[in-house]
Computed example of a mutant assay.
Amino acid sequence: MSHISRYDPFSMEGVPDLFQGLFRPLRAAGGVEGQAGGIRIDVTEDEGGYTVKAELPGVEKNDIDVKIDGNLVSLAAKIERGSELKEGERVVRRERYSGSVSRAFTLAAEIDDEKASAQYKDGVLTLVLPKKVASARKRIEIG
């Protein structure tokens, strides 16, 4: 026996399936949401400041650039993969990213860039970013 169902021309059922993967190439190129070529980070906060851990596997320490401007933190890295082909070999598939990646994010408090420190070990960049001590507010008399 067949099952009879009513057709609804305004139904949104099935619409998400139409767009499955439509934006995937853009996300992969920009490194969004942990796709290839992106910088994945973890940020923790305590009373004194922030700790940022960024995954940068295969990057040389000299190829990493960190900039702090107030509460804006910018990370950039250059990833180079040398040609590892021997005579008679050919590339069948290449998935490892080569090029430059960058990421910028803002934190809730300004950073004391004079006391900030960075360490790079085993493909993880660790930034210790102390918060800037708030200066006392000065009241200005209106004359």
Rank of each mutant, 00 (worst) to 15 (best):
G88V: 04
V32I: 11
P57G: 04
T126L: 05
R93D: 05
H3M: 09
A77R: 09
G31R: 00
E84A: 15
D63F: 14
E60R: 14
F23T: 10
K138I: 10
D8E: 11
A77P: 09
R27T: 09
V15F: 02
K67W: 00
R96Y: 08
D42K: 07
Q35L: 12
A77E: 12
G88K: 12
S83I: 11
I68S: 03
G123I: 01
K132Q: 13
K115A: 07
L22Q: 09
I79R: 15
E60L: 15
I79P: 13
S74A: 14
R24M: 06
E47F: 01
K61E: 15
R81Q: 14
K115G: 08
G21T: 00
L125T: 00
I4Q: 09
G48L: 11
E80L: 15
G21P: 03
I39A: 05
H3P: 00
V133A: 13
G99Y: 10
P57Y: 02
A116M: 07
G14T: 02
Q35C: 09
E114N: 06
K78R: 15
G30K: 08
R96H: 10
R137D: 14
I111M: 03
S102A: 06
L72Y: 01
G48T: 14
R139D: 13
A76R: 11
R81F: 08
I39Q: 06
F105R: 01
R139C: 05
D17G: 10
I79D: 15
R90N: 11
L75M: 02
A108R: 13
V66R: 02
Q35G: 06
Y120Q: 01
P57W: 06
Y7F: 13
T126D: 09
R137Q: 14
P9F: 02
L107N: 01
I140S: 10
H3E: 03
A28D: 14
V52F: 03
E114F: 05
V66C: 05
R94F: 05
E84G: 13
R96N: 06
A136R: 13
E89K: 04
E141A: 10
G58I: 02
G88S: 05
N62K: 15
F19T: 07
K61N: 12
S11E: 06
A28E: 15
G21E: 07
D113I: 00
S11R: 02
I142N: 04
A134Q: 08
P9S: 05
I111N: 03
P9M: 01
D8P: 01
V133L: 08
